[in-house]
Simulated assay, not measured.
Amino acid sequence: MASQNPSLTPWDKFASTWDEGMGDEGNDYFRYLELPILEKLAKPEEGFRALDLATGNGLVARWLAQKGAASVIATDGAPAMLDYAKARTEGAGYADRISYHCLDVTSQASWDEFIESDFGSTGGSFDVITMNMALMDIQDLGPLAKALRHLLKPNGCFVATLLHPIFFTSGASRQILVHEDSETGEHSIERSIVMTRYWNVPPAKQMVFPGRKAETPYMYHRPLHQLFTPFFEAGLTMDALEETNFDESFRDPVREHSSKNFTEFPKILGFRMRRVAGLVSN
């Protein structure tokens, strides 16, 4: 079944490309920047119940199961992604603890269906809800924020990671300056970013699938206050914030413009949200 949401069509169409790039263990961004945030902020304990949103090929869902989750519901709005996630799980010792559900986090109707299903019918039932690298792909965070308030246990947490808005989604330019020492003749390189906009940045194409520019999905830039406000308005509070970056050991000597070479600027932003104590879900 193909996705009904046009914004999800590229993810459905090129799910095989995404799966090939991520594999079983993920890319450098996942292993060295995103996973450390998930480890630090989710702090999963044996026997917890988890929900993984925008699971892709199931990287985080598999990690949650391996960390001792009693059950993990892996969701994605692109059915083809779920097919690859299932295939990556087949034969694993924890496979019976992961179930799959097609869920479009941008759609209130899709959330209503999920909450009324056997998966989410018992409100406040998840210890950990994760969303790895998807918030910048979502035009409206309202339905997600309201659903989290309903689905999280009082002591549960929502942990999300996304491309850092300062380095990536703002559209900042990367600048490389070569300095020559007049005394020694030696060259030194200085890297910086030039931001011309941060407050009002229109949606932009993200080159997720090389060579498919016309079909690549949009990403949505949000200043930090716009990113967090929907969650605060839904009755959630933030109690942890993390920024991660590549260090000098990842420097790319061939591609000077590579994001890995800009070691002074964080690449990934992560945060943790919890339900405000005493607030009852509607």
Rank of each mutant, 00 (worst) to 15 (best):
D28W: 07
A95S: 15
V72E: 01
D127N: 15
F114G: 00
D252N: 11
A92L: 08
R197P: 06
E242K: 07
S259E: 04
L151M: 10
D247S: 09
G58F: 11
F265A: 02
P217C: 00
F30V: 04
A277P: 14
A214V: 03
G93C: 03
E264W: 06
T237W: 15
T196H: 12
G142L: 13
P210V: 01
N155I: 00
H150E: 06
I193S: 03
G185P: 03
G91F: 07
A240T: 06
D19W: 03
L279H: 13
R49L: 07
T196G: 12
T75R: 03
D137F: 15
Q226H: 14
F126E: 02
F30D: 12
G185W: 03
D12P: 12
P253R: 02
D83G: 10
M238Y: 07
M1F: 09
L141C: 11
A70S: 15
H101C: 15
K13G: 04
A234T: 04
E215T: 02
L8M: 14
L38V: 05
L51D: 10
F228R: 04
R212K: 14
T89L: 15
S281L: 11
A15D: 00
A240Y: 05
T55E: 07
E186A: 07
A234M: 04
A65L: 03
R49G: 05
M273K: 11
Q206F: 11
P10A: 01
L38F: 09
T263G: 03
L236M: 08
A70W: 09
A2S: 10
R275N: 15
G171I: 01
H164S: 00
D247R: 02
G21T: 05
E20R: 13
A80K: 08
